[in-house]
C-alpha cells in the first residue's frame, strides 16, 4: 500500500517538476521589469527587457507611414525618454492618456519598443 502511494506521488510530482522547469526556462526571455523613467535614466540597462509607463510628450510624435516608423517621447514628472517603434501608428495614439512600452535600449540610448500599449481615458467604460 505504501509502495503504491509512493508511486502515485512520484507520478504526480513529475508533471509539477516539468511545469516548474518550463516556467524557469521561459522566464528569462519573457520577463519585462517595470521601471519608472527617472530610474532607467540613472541606471544603465542595455540588455534588460523593460516595461516603462509614461505620459506622451504631445509634440514629440513623429510618424513615417511608409516604413512604418513611429518616434515619440515619454515623460514622467521630471525626466523624459525617447522611443522608437517599428510599427503602425495605433488609431488612438495621440489621445492616449498614458503609454506603456516594452522593449530594450539600443546603442544610441533610444528605447526600442517591441510592444506598445495605450491606456485611454475611455478604455471600456465612459467614466474616468
Amino acid at each position: 500500500m505504501a509502495d503504491k502511494k509512493a508511486k502515485v506521488i512520484i507520478v504526480a510530482l513529475l508533471p509539477v517538476l516539468v511545469l516548474g522547469w518550463l516556467a524557469f526556462r521561459a522566464f528569462e526571455n519573457s520577463a519585462a521589469y517595470y521601471y519608472t523613467i527617472s530610474e532607467v535614466l540613472v541606471q544603465e540597462m542595455r540588455d534588460q527587457k523593460l516595461r516603462i509607463k509614461g505620459k506622451l510628450v504631445k509634440d514629440s510624435v513623429n510618424y513615417d507611414p511608409s516604413i512604418p516608423l513611429l518616434e515619440f517621447s515619454l515623460a514622467d514628472q521630471d525626466s523624459q525618454v525617447d522611443a522608437v517603434y517599428a510599427g503602425v501608428l495605433p488609431d488612438n495614439f495621440h489621445h492616449a492618456d498614458e503609454v506603456i512600452v516594452e522593449g530594450k535600449f539600443n546603442s544610441r540610448g533610444q528605447f526600442t519598443v517591441s510592444k506598445l500599449m495605450l491606456q485611454c481615458p475611455s478604455k471600456y467604460e465612459g467614466e474616468d
Binding site: L19, F27, N29, S30, A32, Y33, Y34, K115
Partner: peptide, 23 residues
Amino acid sequence: SRTLAGREIVLDESFFNQVTVPF
C-alpha cells in the same frame, strides 16, 4: 513580484506559450 520583490515584473505571451503548449 510587486509585493515580494518591490519591482513589478511582467511576463509576456512567450512565457505562457512556452509553459502551456507542452501541457
